[in-house]
Nucleic acid binder design. Structure first.
Length: 574
DNA sequence: GCCGTTTTCGGCCCGACTGTTTTCAGTCG
């Protein structure tokens, strides 16, 4: 994984924020933001590049290239340190509150010396903002609501952040001598959208070297507990990591024990007890003789309980035990089932990579087909025109089948207006191979209007997929309010697929809504909404979410062969 | 700070929404 790219992306974004907060040149701040995104989305590990190589990345010029080189060489950038010394970190944290930007954050800091979210919440409670300019009753209410949203994430970590750290740690521990098996478990293996802490398991005869290795990792900031069976540390970013080292014979039982949700584990332990057995992280034992009857693999443990192996993403006690007992466990969709991505962007709008680069990267993933769906004119900031999208269509046709025979579909991501209207008239839409339509504005229409809006989209014969349907952002923005049962019914009736957007801050639809929609017979598309090459790999998070929603390949249109997909895209037409 | 079928300066994503400072600043996508 390209860690340095992400580190530098974060650093440059922070610098941009600090410029904005201190009232610096807005265009300069934006220049840093653009460079941050470009580096984060750059497919080559930047630590392998020199200043010249760095400057070939779009939006990276002499000044930023020098700062990146300084960072790679010394681990910090003096210009950033200088700004940091002027603005406490908590002031920047304030801008994470929806509706509170850099200007308001600075005012709060300068006038009231508020430098953390907690201090701000306390100040509002104490009515300390009453004569602060620009902070009327409504603004304070909005800020409090924003703080509530932030806190609902409850200090949990986004899935992809935890995944990256867990894979690094698994990589390090796997290299320790004597390691027989190493894997992450817990909610991360179940692919929950946020993660409380990271659970790592090792199978080895001796535990000491692994405990020491974890405690000694560069990413470890604090050792919370250091024992023979369990070690807990906190990383520099504040993430808790629990390591358990098990005897190799206990590997399967340990994985079962540390992967299942609490509710799932209670259910399978109950099943064990009824059979005169006892289940722990060390194995499945005869309750009387205490003799081990299964423990080496997860399959062994489940089989001895009379169950088939249950995919980790289903282990939530949401009916998977009953389904397993009845032989009706779904064969959930896997990453290998996905034949193509149906929602992606290029640098024609807000993507980072050219059409050619995106197509080539998609072909390297082994896709049979791939859709390019840049933004339509309704999203004014993208400045799309008829001419530009038609010119792109020519380029798409020219590249069709060129890379490993991969077929290309030319599409667009339409903007859904408040009444369900979209950017282009029917005649123009008919020229696309597929249209994704998404809500990007008017989030607070009220349930009835929002429902009508979606139903009208479903009834549009040229729209085959609703993109990120609820528009929620994990821990940041709640889903829009609609009568989803009515929307799901309309999707099923009209043959409109719902997207499972794989961007880790969206994961939209989420698992629970997928479970509901599935009951209506709705079809789904697991798409990355990629804006750069590395985003294509986010597919795994979308597939994990689809699995949590019990979807099989039959439910997911982009697992289908192209001929069948094309029939679906005609939406009941000829 | 970056960029150039505008080529070393002068632009840079544009428009809508919201609350409030009643004429517009701040925020967002």
């Amino acid at each position: 994984m390209a860690r340095p790219n992400e580190e530098v992306e974060g650093l440059l974004q922070e610098y941009a924020d600090l410029i904005a907060i201190t009232g610096g040149d807005a265009f300069k701040a934006r220049a840093y933001e653009k460079a941050a995104r470009a580096i984060g989305g750059h497919p080559v590990d930047i630590s392998r590049l020199d200043a010249e190589g760095l400057r070939e990345i779009p939006h990276v010029g002499r000044s930023i290239a020098d700062k990146v080189v300084e960072y790679l060489r010394t681990g910090s950038v003096s210009a950033v340190e200088e700004r940091r010394s002027k603005i406490p970190a908590g002031v920047r944290a304030l801008t994470a509150i929806p509706t509170l930007g850099p200007k308001k954050a600075l005012r709060l800091y300068e006038d009231l010396h508020i430098s953390s979210v907690d201090e701000l919440a306390a100040a509002i409670e104490a009515d300390a903002l009453h004569d602060l300019k620009g902070f009327g009753a409504k603004t304070q209410e909005n800020i409090l609501h924003g703080i509530t949203l932030l806190r609902q994430a409850g200090g949990r970590i986004p899935l992809h952040v935890a995944m990256r750290d867990a894979e690094d740690i698994v990589g390090e521990l796997s290299a320790v001598k004597g390691c027989r098996r190493c894997a992450y478990a817990g909610s991360l293996r179940r692919m929950r959208e946020t993660i409380g802490d990271i659970d790592v398991l090792v199978a080895a005869a001796r535990s000491g070297p692994f405990m020491d290795a974890l405690a000694g990792l560069p990413s470890t900031a604090e050792v919370i507990a250091h024992g023979a069976k369990k070690t807990s540390v906190r990383t520099a970013q504040g993430i808790q990591v629990d390591l358990r080292v098990l005897p190799p014979d206990s590997w399967g039982a340990g994985l079962v024990y540390f992967t299942g949700s609490k509710a799932h584990n209670i259910r399978i332990r109950t099943i064990a007890v009824r059979q005169g057995l006892k289940l722990s992280e060390y194995g499945l034992f005869d309750a009387e003789s205490e003799e081990s009857v299964a423990s080496r693999t997860e399959e062994d443990v489940y089989e001895r309980l009379g169950l088939p192996w249950i995919p980790p993403t289903l282990r939530e006690d949401r009916g998977e035990i009953e389904a397993a007992l009845g032989g009706e466990l779904p064969e959930v969709v896997t990453e290998r089932d996905i034949r193509g991505d149906l929602h992606t962007h290029t640098d024609l709008t807000d993507g980072l990579a050219s059409l050619e680069t995106m197509v080539q990267a998609a072909a390297e993933r082994g896709y049979a087909y791939f859709a390019v769906t840049d933004h339509a004119p309704g999203l004014a900031m993208q400045r799309m025109t008829d001419e530009k999208i038609l010119a792109q269509r020519e380029q798409v046709r020219a590249l069709d089948g060129v890379h490993r025979g991969m077929r290309l579909l030319h599409g667009t991501e339409l903007n859904i207006g408040p009444k369900g209207e979209v950017d282009w008239p029917d005649e123009f839409l008919a020229g696309f191979d597929l249209c994704v339509a998404s809500v990007h504005s008017h989030f607070d229409l009220g349930r009835a209007a929002m429902t009508r809006r979606f139903v009208r989209v479903c009834e549009n014969p040229h729209i085959q997929i609703i993109g990120h349907p609820t528009t929620r952002l994990v821990g940041k923005r709640p889903p829009v309010d609609a009568d989803w049962d009515e929307v799901f019914a309309a999707c099923a009736r009209t043959g409109t697929a719902l997207e499972v957007n794989a961007q880790p801050d969206r994961l939209d639809l989420c698992d629970e809504e997928i479970l509901r929609a599935r009951e209506y017979g709705v079809k789904f598309a697991v798409n990355t909404d990629a804006h750069c090459v590395p985003h294509l790999a986010c597919l795994r998070f979308g597939v994990g979410t689809a699995q949590r929603g019990w979807l099989t390949a039959k439910d997911v249109v982009n697992t289908w062969p192209l001929s069948r997909l094309r029939r679906f895209l005609r939406k009941g037409g000829a």
